[in-house]
């Protein structure tokens, strides 16, 4: 059996680095990550707070604050263009049109003084050259699509008259407005009740199947990953430490950090009161250790881990499963240690 031909990716990120300036020195929050997103694929970015997963999404859309932030990449290829090299105006045309984003906080992400209808209509007016009436008709259809009950009568209402779940539906309608190729969903369900979470996830899945769009889904919730993702990239301290298809990752977690993450999911199906945690914390951006950044928290850490940064390499040449680890990555440790000592 041959492997299915890989279709051309919709979004191809090469060596993306996002840095922030703290007291005059630049520190990377995202360190040279690369990944490709296939058509109609959902790629989950998973990791603890501060691992750079949201920053990755903001960097793709060019929304990193320019006052003290900087995005560098060998390429962020989308529809044959390099997003990292577009002008502000060209980038504005991509945002909300080719690529759109859903944010974490539905309570604060909508403008409190503008009507729901206006906020959904807006993207259509700026990108699709629709007249006001056409845009409003389209916006109404979108609100119906995301299953907002009696959308027509609520069109002129304000965000404070909507519940959290309904607001997130409005956010999704806004993101879908121009039929984007890619949606960046930054923890879209984190702020919601569990039942509402399930509804929003089902809705996103349904819309993805209907429209054929691709999605980068950012979350720290591995349960959500299992339900939604095709592929998973685990991030730690600005690096992708492991990337694999969702089945492979859950079946064969290889990086010690991925393993620890999977172990720390609270289980209700087992009779135990014990909750596994990962000791320690992500090192602060301006005090990153030399070598592997997870070494200080890693039960398997060797001398080499503290001396040299491991590369992200496939487990075997054919495999799409790649890991950034000296110990687990199939490296010849003895030879490496010798090299390091020379």
């Amino acid at each position: 059996m041959t492997a299915p031909a890989t279709p051309a990716p919709v979004l191809d990120v090469w060596n993306l680095t996002t840095s922030f300036r703290i007291e005059g020195t630049w520190y990377p929050a995202v360190r040279g990550i690369s990944f490709a997103l296939a058509p109609n694929e959902t790629l989950a970015l998973v990791g603890e707070s501060g691992c750079g997963k949201s920053m990755t999404a903001l960097s793709i859309l060019g929304l990193v604050p320019t006052a003290n932030g900087r995005v560098e990449a060998d390429g962020i290829m989308f529809e044959g263009r390099d997003l990292a090299r577009l002008s502000d105006e060209e980038m504005r045309e991509v945002r909300g049109n080719g690529i759109s984003m859903i944010f974490q906080e539905p309570m604060t992400s909508l403008n409190p003084v503008l009507t729901i209808g206006f906020q959904v209509t807006e993207a259509l007016i700026y990108h699709q050259n629709l007249s006001r009436a056409e845009a409003e008709r389209e916006a109404l259809a979108l609100l119906d699509l995301v299953k907002i009950p009696s959308a027509k009568s609520r069109f002129r209402e304000y965000p404070h008259q909507f519940s959290g779940g309904m607001r997130q539906r409005v956010m999704i309608a806004m993101a879908l407005a121009c039929r984007p190729k890619v949606i960046l969903a930054d923890e879209p369900t984190t702020a919601l009740d569990v039942t509402i979470q399930a509804q929003i996830l089902a809705l996103l899945n349904e819309l993805k199947a209907e429209t054929g769009m691709s999605m980068i889904f950012i979350t720290h919730n591995l349960g959500v990953v299992a339900a939604l993702a095709d592929r998973v990239a685990v991030m730690y301290a600005g690096d992708i430490v492991e990337i694999a298809s969702v089945g492979e990752l859950f079946a064969r977690p290889t990086h010690p950090y991925t393993e620890a993450l999977l172990r720390s999911i609270p289980r209700s199906d087992r009779d135990t009161a014990e909750l596994h945690t990962i000791p320690g914390a992500v090192p602060p951006i301006h005090r990153m250790p030399k070598g592997c950044r997870f070494a200080a928290r890693c039960p398997l850490a060797q001398d080499i881990c503290r001396a040299m940064d491991p590369p992200l390499e496939p487990l075997d040449p054919e495999s799409p499963h790649a890991v950034r680890c000296w110990v687990r990555g199939g490296h010849d440790l003895a030879a490496l240690t010798e090299d390091a000592n020379v």
């Binding site: 504005r92 992400s109 909508l110 503008l114």
Partner: peptide
């Protein structure tokens, strides 16, 4: 505020973001 980031992510022109949002 977050809603300004949302407006930028929608591709709203800066002039409209400043005066309207």
């Amino acid at each position: 505020e977050d809603y300004i980031r949302t407006a930028r992510a929608k591709g709203v022109p800066m002039r409209v973001i400043v005066w309207r949002h």
